[in-house]
Nucleic acid binder design. Sequence first.
DNA 1: ATCGTCTATCTTATCGATAACTTCGCGGCG
DNA 2: CGCCGCGAAGTTATCGATAAGATAGACGAT
Lengths: 346, 346
Amino acid sequence: MEREEAVIKEMQQRRPTIYDIAKTAGVSHMTVSRYLRFNGERTREDPRERIRAAIDELDYRPNLAARAMRTTRTGRLAILFPSGSAASSVHMLTGATEAAREAGYQVDAITLAGSSSERSERMLELAEAGLFEGLLALTPLDSERQAQIASRVPVVVGAEYDDEMRGIGDLADASPVAEIIEFLAAQGHRTFLHIAGDRSYTTVRSREQTFRETIERLGLESAGTVAGSWLGEAGQKAVLDLPDDSRVTAIIASNDHLAAAAIHGALQRGWRVPQDVSVAGWDNNPLGEWLPPTLTTVKVDYMELGRRSMARLLAVMREEEEPTYSESVAAVVWRDSTGPANPSRK
Amino acid sequence: MEREEAVIKEMQQRRPTIYDIAKTAGVSHMTVSRYLRFNGERTREDPRERIRAAIDELDYRPNLAARAMRTTRTGRLAILFPSGSAASSVHMLTGATEAAREAGYQVDAITLAGSSSERSERMLELAEAGLFEGLLALTPLDSERQAQIASRVPVVVGAEYDDEMRGIGDLADASPVAEIIEFLAAQGHRTFLHIAGDRSYTTVRSREQTFRETIERLGLESAGTVAGSWLGEAGQKAVLDLPDDSRVTAIIASNDHLAAAAIHGALQRGWRVPQDVSVAGWDNNPLGEWLPPTLTTVKVDYMELGRRSMARLLAVMREEEEPTYSESVAAVVWRDSTGPANPSRK
DNA sequence: ATCGTCTATCTTATCGATAACTTCGCGGCG
DNA sequence: CGCCGCGAAGTTATCGATAAGATAGACGAT
């Protein structure tokens, strides 16, 4: 008796399988499998109804692990983030997930912690675990590892956090920095300061490089780059530390937070913004629109960026050519913190 | 010949299994399995070395799908987000992932789109797919579905986006609103305006309710609640629409963006902040520290929130009691946008 | 009437791992 | 000397699904 009870209990707890469905519907498990795969289209009316009823009654749902093992088709993709990643990644994730869903895939986001080699190791595990059909990495990998991973599963590495700063990705596209400098130069600005933020970010190094190149290309003067920290205090200090006779009339900051702090520092010194000094940020923080003066910034369409990254992965998986895009995902938003240079401050 | 070539090619492409390892090491597959599970401790020196060499040579990695099917232990948990979720979720994810890693689990983040019932449906699939040992849902579910899901796999529902606004979660904790109001009332404020944001957010409704209850409890006067949108313009308009003889001296906004816009509106009207009107926000946007005046706000420790949510899930999985916390994850950050009431504006 | 074709269905094998049980080899002890 | 115990290694079964091949029945062509 006791034995029987235990069995019953187990039957209640165990999840139903296609064999259970088959038994209650009075068909073979293969008929159930076919019913599921072809949505009942290759099944005759009579057993089809019984199968449907059985599925309903037992509340059956397929075991994806078992299916994945047999087919290798899992319908799942993974996006890998570095663990300390920024808020923007939510929007990238949203865009990537949308693009994947349209192609019939589910997306899992996985954050990777640890050193670059540890991350690569973990990524190899994921690539070979048989759970995912493709990986979209927004974290850089050991380059040797990367080839190894890609030999098993399609992998696309987004550029956002690429340690080697290869300018392959949209996120590393710092062209708005050039656009801002060009425009301000046309308004008479000659001496520029760059407040760069934490150099461990690829994007920071990329913008810094663009800043230097553009200054040089246009024959302008750089008052240098201040880097090291994302803290507002660093931006403020960068401005307070300028000599009194500094000819800086334009400040390019790596994000809106640093830009706002720089404006604060400028006002502390009695400089007017933008009459005495122009300041531009990056990120389109919503508060920037309500600062006095409203903040010129760069708006990045992270959702589109995520969509494009995913499109690249899907193209690789289908062995198609990777799509190219003419439109940039970043655009300058001109507001009141930038304006013509003050001739008296040259 | 051709046949042979194809076979060779397939052998190169196919991922190695424990059987491949066993063959090249000259042992049975079970010995390999034991070696892997017990880290070589129950294997004699001689075969152990050969197995290790074989694993190294073939670059073997276990197929998690197969293992999961046999054991049900997968070592993976999933966190479910609603698709349009906020930036804060990155930090929650980070915290939750950390807590899970400490307990020996990997975490996948999955965003769910669609209506509440569609999300529940998809969640049921995930719960029954055999891929995850537990689910942490930050999205509300049909309540009937929830019981069903939980019967198969441990599930914890965070309150952040709970449609029914049951005050179970830390994120719905609007007590800082009460704290702000109490403090301002002690400084002589009598009439309060609430700018609430989009009411489809649980947290918004929660704060609105706390606002109303606190006003009533302290016998203060409410100038009403403005709700409907997260756009800054809505916050600005809320202030501009106040009658000239309005006795409002304190404005509680649902986030820093609305608060900054409200300050802007107040300044447009010629009101000084905080001398004529005090304004408080929510979210601790970094720019708030650099606004003139610097913005009083509420700082929420989202990482801790994620950690706590995960701790709840882990407790449920271990059938332990859920931990309780005495410390709030939200704290008021007092800055210059709030101050004593101006007696002449009563 | 018989045969072949087509389709729905059933039976058996398989994916890659672990569980359960069996066998083997070695050393100690009566 | 033979038996027993014990741990390592081997054999077979199993998880839940799909693949491949076999079978049965309906139907049209010969």
